[in-house]
Amino acid sequence: MTSPDAPHNRWSDLDRPPLNVAALRRGLLRPGGLWSSLDVVESTGSTNSDLAGRADDLAEGTVLVAEEQTAGRGRLDRAWTAPSRSGLFFSVFLTPREVPVERWGWLPLLAGVAAATGLARSAGVDLALKWPNDLLVTVPGDLGHPRPGETPAGAERKAGGILAERAGAGVVIGMGINVSLRAAELPAPTAGSLALAGAVSTDRETLLRAVLRSLEEWYGTWRAAGGDAAASGLQEAYAAGCATLERTVRAQLPGDRSIVGEAVAIDGDGRLVLSTGGGLMEPVSAGDIVHLRGAEGGLT
Rank of each mutant, 00 (worst) to 15 (best):
G192C: 02
E165S: 05
I177K: 09
P187R: 05
N178I: 13
S193F: 13
A184W: 13
P187Y: 06
T206Y: 10
A191G: 00
S180A: 04
P187T: 06
V211L: 05
I173R: 06
S193C: 00
L196H: 09
R182N: 09
L196N: 01
R204Y: 03
A169Q: 14
P187L: 08
G170P: 13
A197E: 00
T202F: 11
T190G: 12
L208V: 05
G168R: 12
G198S: 11
N178Y: 08
A195F: 06
A169G: 15
D203M: 11
I177N: 10
A195C: 05
G168E: 08
N178P: 00
L208K: 02
A199P: 08
A191W: 01
R182C: 05
S180R: 11
L196T: 03
G168L: 02
V211G: 00
T202M: 15
G176H: 10
N178H: 10
G168C: 06
I173M: 08
T190D: 15
R166E: 08
V171E: 03
A210R: 10
R182L: 09
T206E: 14
L186D: 10
G198T: 12
A197S: 01
A164H: 03
A195Q: 07
A197K: 04
R209D: 11
R182M: 06
L196F: 00
V172C: 03
G176E: 12
L212H: 07
T206L: 15
L212A: 13
G170R: 13
L194V: 04
V172Y: 03
G174L: 00
R166C: 11
M175W: 13
E205W: 14
R204A: 09
G170V: 08
T202N: 14
S193T: 12
V171L: 03
A195D: 09
A183P: 06
P189F: 01
E205F: 14
L194H: 14
A164C: 04
A184E: 12
A169T: 14
T202K: 14
A199K: 04
A191K: 01
L212P: 10
M175C: 10
G176C: 07
A199T: 08
R209V: 15
L196C: 02
R166D: 05
I177F: 12
A183N: 05
L212K: 07
L181V: 04
G170S: 10
R182H: 09
A199F: 04
R204V: 15
A184L: 08
E185N: 05
A191M: 04
D203L: 11
M175K: 10
M175N: 08
I177R: 01
V200F: 04
V171H: 07
E185C: 03
G198V: 12
R213H: 13
T202W: 12
V179T: 04
E165Q: 03
A167C: 08
M175T: 12
S201L: 11
V211M: 13
V179M: 11
P189R: 02
L212S: 12
T206M: 12
L194W: 07
G174H: 09
L181I: 00
V200A: 09
A199D: 02
S193K: 11
A164F: 00
G198R: 07
V211E: 01
M175R: 14
E205S: 14
A199G: 09
V171K: 02
G198I: 10
G174K: 09
I173H: 03
A164K: 04
V172N: 05
T202C: 14
V172H: 00
M175E: 06
P187C: 07
A199Y: 01
